[in-house]
Design a protein around this nucleic acid. Structure first.
Lengths: 333, 333
DNA sequence: GCCTCACATTACATCGATGTAACGTGAGGC
DNA sequence: GCCTCACGTTACATCGATGTAATGTGAGGC
């Protein structure tokens, strides 16, 4: 049986509250007493019971991080950053996956693991305005990404601008038949819609007529799905001059298909991605992509979250994270 | 303020304990009473406080999963599987990263998050026999991987056999100068040692003399580190006929380097990996690797863990997960 | 009609840590 | 030498859910 404050107190010859005071350091404790208590804690290998502390304090020191699918490199890198940054600040992170079931996003927002977590960082896919019944009190929530949700704090990358910039960059290399891969037709993914919008804006600026046959839909944002979609597309369509994939994962699937078909990248077709996952740099050829600082993103999300926990009533806040077009071999001649 | 059992009880006109009985379903509750309580819970949007429940029950419903680095695809896929399987079984998962600080493995084993988690699944890197002071009571722990720890339950893939099989497969293609990439010289990584052992055993069987110059050390198990190590190696050594990388991530880094140098895979050099991460299939060329069912691995780990939680005294158990050599383009002519 | 028995329900204590308010105990002022 | 004051320390209540033991209620048997 694990030692409790009572046991420590008994051994040190003080009251339980004094032990608590030693741990928390807010109420002053005299030197000798503190020393005796610390001795006793060490001797009994005392570890505080966080359930009890959480019950008493109303705070558990745990935040939840909800992502569509930890198996995808993008989610994994975000998770990595959040866990690291959270750990630095003394938080633990509970992971939830929402991918298999979008209603889980709503669930998590409305109940937030029943006080076992103090806050929630949510990377939604389908969540939108209607997500939250107004009037229901939200737990402290920070959203990651493109979602058009105005009821919670948010950290995001400007997808429209980034997609526009990437399309312009492709256009500047002289390529005109620029395809995009990753539009979700059925389930409205906010990121897909915004990136398509940026793409279209850029085409306008480049004086290129919009050609719907260059918009390649893709069921999921995985290399697998991208490979199948692109393969099917190339079976009945000419090869575009450039292919802008809405995530790096899709781009990696696309590179694989192009290579299998003997199409050279970037000579026959340029390929670009989005997210700058770790493997983008080691793709063959290395992948041009939209890069942003995920560590910084995590830090900002955590900052907004802790501030929200401190002030539940404050105004909504949105933080935009800078991005950068990183040109690598997949687009450079 | 969030509703409690008391509030629900008051509204339903029953005692708090009856509300608890309705929730837990062990003590029988009559139909009408149950109905009234359920109505009240719905009306108040009641959510049980898990800290309180955890304190009372001594169990929180949360397990910890400790991995070296969530950013690596292998860890991410393991995490994905564990989170999914755990969720199916009603557990939540708290993620801990140990990568930056190996002493964290020891810490986690000895204290297990202070009762906030009921058990721990740990994928150690450096942990060994000496990890645990005998006599200190361990929390329920299941280890993932190669580690030579005999004090806890464990789920693993037989690295020696798998590395041997892979090396034999490479040898069967007629290649003789088979290099390995990924031996850790300094910090003794158990997996590296075992895989090297399997490699050496296979060379013996193939009648190939061991050539130390074909053992390429690599600081970390990342594409980055692998790329640098291989690059440096190729600057002053002839190109081997085959390159067995101890993880897929390293293989991806290696493929990138080989391609940049104009070496053709598999014609000039065959490349193989280990882990069968999702991107292995979409590498250019697709990667031959050691594959195993990560979902199954997660399921077994969770099974061992729950059984261990039920019986802290039972005998240590070790479960071996089957593996399979998956031959793809990176080794087939 | 009385007693028994079964079963739903209740009051109370408990898990461990900590805020509150009361309580010593000593030093310092006069 | 008495009183004040400050500061360290203590007893007690509390957070919310639930196990335990006791209570209440009704049906069924004779």
């Amino acid at each position: 049986m694990r030692a409790t404050v009572k046991d420590v107190a008994r051994l040190a010859g003080v009251s339980p509250k004094t032990v608590s005071n030693v741990m928390n350091g807010i109420v002053p404790v005299s030197g000798p007493t503190r020393f005796r208590v610390e001795q006793a804690m060490a001797e009994l290998d005392y570890v505080p019971n966080l359930s009890a502390r959480g019950l008493r304090n109303g705070r558990s020191g745990v935040i939840a991080l909800a992502l569509p699918d930890l198996g995808t490199p993008y989610s994994a890198e975000i998770a990595h950053s959040v866990v690291e940054v959270a750990h630095e600040q003394g938080w633990s992170v509970q992971i939830e996956e929402t991918g298999s079931d979008p209603t889980r996003e709503y669930e998590l927002m409305s109940r937030a693991r029943s006080n076992l977590v103090d806050g929630l960082i949510l990377n939604p896919v389908v969540l939108d305005e209607s997500a939250v019944k107004v009037g229901v009190s939200l737990p402290p929530v920070v959203l990651l990404g493109e979602v058009s949700q105005k009821l919670a704090d948010r950290v995001w990358v400007d997808s429209v601008a980034a997609a526009r910039d990437m399309t312009l960059a492709l256009g500047r290399t002289g390529r005109r038949r620029i395809a995009v891969l990753g539009t979700a037709e059925v389930r409205g993914s906010a990121a897909a819609i915004l990136r398509t919008r940026g793409y279209q804006a850029a085409l306008g600026e480049l004086g290129i007529a919009l050609d719907d046959s260059l918009i390649i839909p893709c069921e999921k944002w995985s290399p697998d799905s991208a490979a199948r979609a692109l393969s099917a597309y190339l079976d009945s369509n000419p090869v575009p001059e450039a292919l802008f994939c809405f995530t790096d994962s899709m781009a990696i699937g696309a590179l694989s298909v192009l290579w299998k078909r003997g199409l050279r990248v970037p000579d026959d077709v340029a390929v670009a991605g989005f997210d700058d996952i770790a493997d983008a740099k080691y793709a063959v050829p290395s992948l041009t992509t939209v890069s942003f600082d995920k560590r910084h993103m995590a830090r900002e999300a955590l900052r907004l979250l802790t501030e929200r926990m401190a002030d539940r009533q404050g105004p909504q806040r949105v933080v935009a994270v800078d991005y950068e077009i990183v040109e690598r071999e997949s687009t450079s001649p």
